[in-house]
Structure formats: structure tokens, C-alpha cells
Amino acid sequence: MTTTEKTAADWIAAAQDVAAKLAVDAVERDRRNATPYEEVRLLKEAGLVTLLGPPEHGGGGQTWETAYRVTREIARADGSIGQLLGYHYLWAWAARLVATDEQIAAVEELYTRNNFFFGGAVNPRDSDLTVTEDGDELVYNGHKSFSTGSRVSDLTVLEGVLDGTGDHIFAIVPSGQEGIVFHDDWDNIGQRLTESGSVTITDVRVPWASAAGYVDRKFRPLTYNTLNVPAIQLVFTNFYLGIAQGALAAGLEYTRDRTRPWPYGGDDKESATEEWYILDGYGDLQAKLWAAEALTDKAGAAISRVLHAPRADLTPEVRGELAVLIAAAKQRVIETGLEIGTKIFELTGARASASKHGLDRFWRNLRTHSLHDPVAYKRREVGVYALRGELPEPTWYT
């Protein structure tokens, strides 16, 4: 079957195959914390990296709805690799978000034909990179605290402010160049394989013609340009959801195979799978997870329609409603996932806390990345919409 003949179900099945390979040694790889070159190779060989790429260049031509599901499947087995893939999809779409038609065509042909993997040095909480003009070139300089995908990326998305102006300029550059130094200093309790350390940018040159969305050195804004934040917030939501699904599946498997019934409760059972409190606990967690999945899928279908529609058609109202829906999905998934990540220990038993089982990695992964931006502000966005009917204004986090 050729890439263009694959259906969404085929791509999800391909992701499940990769996930099965990742799951075999997920605990050991998390401990080693080594750069995930082999893991990204698996993604490339399965065609998942070019899932959104144009069919005429060998890409899958799939929708964002499928990309979100694929991200989730990978994250079930390994939250770090799910994050890497989800971020890649957003950066691969960056040209479509802000660039001209000619720039979009060039970037999509480049990454699809070469099966390139994206990283990004675009952390809004740091000072912006400085961009200066040098004739027909732009020169980027500065430092970013986070650059997810760093060493495993082929291309890096840069963002900076043109010196003396307030103009933000995005550009896509080769990762492997002297002016980009990745510092390999990501050392957090979770999402350990995401290569999210800091980066220093020194005299990285880009032709003015490659400044995304600029025509005659002037940017032409559209509401569509602001979809980068809702799109990546739903990337977060989907790999969080995958982590939660993986946690529940691991807990269920452990209980079926290893958990012993409690012999001092006065209503003794032959098997832990007959224990009332265990059945009650898993029933509650599964119901909450199904609800979170349904809300996330609703958000995925809604934003996918917009992302694949003509860019000029998007209105601020539709964009705002999408942001609220995604904020609702994100908060539900975080709270459900963190509950699952801790509750499974009560349902699996004391021996499940042994390091060799690695059940703690699910909570660590979700807890680490869910601090990316305060979930309280997502609840507030939903509350303001529900109570006052007000839509959130676009920001770097909304």
C-alpha cells in the first residue's frame, strides 16, 4: 500500500505498531535518558513524520484530526516521543500558519521529500531572539531556555524580533549548523527524552525572502496566523491523554497479572479482579478517561476542519470558540491523567511501586509537561466564556 492510499485508520494502526516497539523497553530508555535517535528513526521509517505532508511529495496528505490521534497512540507507550512527534507536526505546519503560498510550497516539499524532523526554539517566556538586517539577509542571535527536539531535529523553527521594531519574524533553518549550539541540559523528572534543553543562536543567517509571511519586508496578518497556540495546546492535550491511557492500561495489566487480593477485609475474594474497591476504582477512572477522550476528540475534529479550510475564512469568533473548547479539554485531561497516575498505585498494591515496573513514569511525564502554562488560566478562560460569554484574546498561551 502506498502512502497516498492509506486511510486514517491505516495511519493510526501504523502508530500503534511503532508504539508497541517503544513499549518494550520504555522503562529502561526513560532511565538511560539518552538522545532518542533510534526512536525518531522508527517514526521516520513508519512514515509518521510526513503524515501531514503533501501527497505529491510523498507525504500522507492526512488531516490534523489524524495527526492528533497518532500523537496520542505514540504517547501511550512513551510520553516523550509522543511530545516530540506532536511538536514536530505543529512546526511542520508553521509555514501554513504564517507564510506565503510560495514559502509554504517550498517548506513542505523540503521536509516531506527529505523526511525531515522539526524542532523549535520559540519559548515566549524568554527574551526574544534579536533579528538584525544585513542587506538581503536577516541575522538571528540570542538564547532560549527550551528547544524541544534539539539534537534529533533536522530543521529548527526560529522566532525573533526585528531590531528597532516590534515585528516578530519566524524562519525555518537547518539544525546542523555552527551557529546553533544545543546545550544538552534538559534534566527534569519527566518527559526526559524530549531533548528540550537550552540553545544558543549565534549569527544564524536567513534570506529576507524566507521570512515567513513577509512580502516586500511587510507582514500581512490573518486571524489564521493565531491558530498556532490552540493547535499546540491540543497537541499537549493529546499526548497528555496518551500518557493517561498508557497509565490506566499499565495499571489494569498489573492488577490482572500480579495484584493479590486483600485477605483481611471481611469479604475475602479469590482474585484481586473480584475486589469491590478495585472494581470501583478502575470503573471510576475508566469513566473519567472516556469522558476526557470524547471531549478531546470533539476538539480535534473542530480545529482540524478550520486548519484545513481556506486561511482567509477564519473569523476571530470561531478562533475564540476553538480556544475555549481546547482549554476545556486540556484541563479535563490533566486532572484525569494526574488522578490515574497516582490512583493506580492504590489499585495495584505496594509491590507495584518497585522501580523495575516504572509505573511512576506516567505521573512524572504528565506532571512535568502540564506545568508548561498554569491550568488555572485554562479553567478561567472557560469560566469567563460560560459566565460572561467572552472569548479569549489571542496571546502566546491562549
Rank of each mutant, 00 (worst) to 15 (best):
Met1Cys: 09
Glu5Asp: 14
Lys6Ser: 02
Trp11Gly: 00
Ala13Cys: 06
Ala20Met: 08
Lys21His: 12
Asp25Cys: 01
Val27His: 06
Thr35Ile: 12
Leu42Gln: 11
Thr50Phe: 03
Gly53Arg: 04
Gly58Val: 06
Gly60Glu: 06
Glu65Val: 00
Tyr68Arg: 03
Ala77Gln: 04
Asp78Trp: 04
Ser80Leu: 04
Gly86Val: 02
His88Phe: 13
Leu97Ile: 03
Val98Ile: 11
Ala99Leu: 02
Val107Gln: 10
Glu109Gly: 01
Phe117Pro: 05
Gly120Met: 09
Val122Met: 08
Leu129Ala: 03
Val139Thr: 01
Tyr140Trp: 10
Gly142Ile: 11
Lys144Phe: 03
Ser145His: 10
Thr148Lys: 13
Asp154Ile: 05
Glu159His: 12
Val161Phe: 09
Leu162Val: 08
Asp163Ser: 15
Thr165Tyr: 13
Gly166Glu: 07
Ile169Asn: 02
Gly179Lys: 00
Val181Trp: 10
Gly190Pro: 05
Glu195Ser: 12
Ser196Glu: 15
Ile201Lys: 01
Val204Cys: 00
Pro207His: 01
Trp208Thr: 09
Ala212Glu: 14
Gly213Arg: 04
Val215Tyr: 00
Phe219Asp: 00
Phe219Trp: 08
Thr223Ser: 14
Thr226Arg: 13
Pro230Ala: 07
Pro230Trp: 05
Asn238Val: 06
Gly242Trp: 00
Gly246Gln: 03
Tyr254Ile: 02
Arg260Val: 12
Glu270Lys: 15
Thr273Trp: 07
Glu274Pro: 01
Tyr282Thr: 01
Lys288Ile: 07
Ala294Ser: 05
Ile303Asp: 06
Ala312Met: 13
Ala328Glu: 13
Ile334Arg: 04
Gly341Ser: 09
Thr342Leu: 10
Thr342Gly: 11
Lys343Tyr: 06
Thr348Glu: 02
Gly349Leu: 07
Ser355Phe: 15
Lys356Met: 10
Arg361Ile: 14
Arg367Glu: 03
Pro374Thr: 07
Arg380Ile: 13
Val382Gln: 09
Gly383His: 15
Tyr397Gly: 01
